[in-house]
Design a protein around this nucleic acid. Structure first.
Lengths: 141, 141
DNA sequence: ATTTTTGCAAACCTTTTGCATGGAA
DNA sequence: TTCCATGCAAAAGGTTTGCAAAAAT
């Protein structure tokens, strides 16, 4: 979904140092084709003997979320997870069954947010849409 | 925002027994004019000597979320919170500053969700929109 | 009488923090 | 050489659980 190089590049562009744990995490995240939790990255990092510790996983995810490379998600199950973002897509549809996610284009969402702002008087800061559903593959099975 | 009676009624309609902790919680939730956390309900229940324990707060919020009377929210700060829902409003705008929330009507959201479903192939189950922004009062100050 | 709900307290799990060490720029 | 990032391990939160007692139907 998202290239490891893009993640590494984001660290650099953001003025963060390029360390080997960060490179390792970039690889782990790039390998995911759906959402993932901090714990999953930690387990996978141990399995591959990458030597990234728990604290570093959390600290790095935090940085990447700030940089807009990953987005925090709250699954219907209540779990905290992340998805790697392609910059063009600000919103996601997440499959309730398998967790695979797809970035989605605007499709009128900004307009809806604006209408809601008008109706309620709120100044809407960060329209963030999380849709949950069944992905094509899971609809079949 | 939501009447305590409505919450009590929801317990009954859902086939749950009417206990005094549940009545007490209905009152506490009805008194809130913005989102609230489990911890806040617990503290308030202690302050008023209502004798509702931690486990009961969580268990009841769980039931109420199933019943659709409250909705789980994830604030921008990362906190887990709840809002009481008016059945007509399926979505909320939450103020990032004060936490006050407003229910919002459709405003074309369902249509957008449908368009997204078409574009991605996902069967969208539970369109859930959480918008964050500044409420009118907080925009002034 | 039967079944659900509660209280209590401990267990659990995820996330965060402090501080000394190690590594990037 | 200077600062940032890491590891470690402990602490901190928030949420859940097991079980016996209490309450609702």
């Amino acid at each position: 979904m998202v290239d490891a190089g893009a993640i590494v590049g984001a660290f650099e562009d953001g003025g963060y140092r390029l360390t080997s744990p960060r490179r390792a995490l970039a690889g782990l995240i790039a390998d995911r084709d759906s959402h993932f939790t901090a714990e999953e990255l930690l387990v996978e990092s141990r399995r591959r003997r990458l030597g990234v510790t728990r604290a570093t996983v959390f600290r790095s995810l935090d940085v990447l979320a700030d940089l807009g490379i990953v987005e925090r998600l709250d699954l219907p199950s209540g779990e905290h997870a992340f998805v790697a973002c392609e910059p063009a897509h600000h919103h996601h549809v997440v499959c309730s069954s398998c967790g695979r996610s797809a970035g989605v284009d605007d499709h009128g969402l900004e307009a809806v947010a604006a209408a809601i702002g008008r109706a309620t008087g709120y100044r809407v800061d960060t329209p963030r849409l999380e849709l949950f559903g069944q992905c094509p593959a899971c609809q079949v099975s």
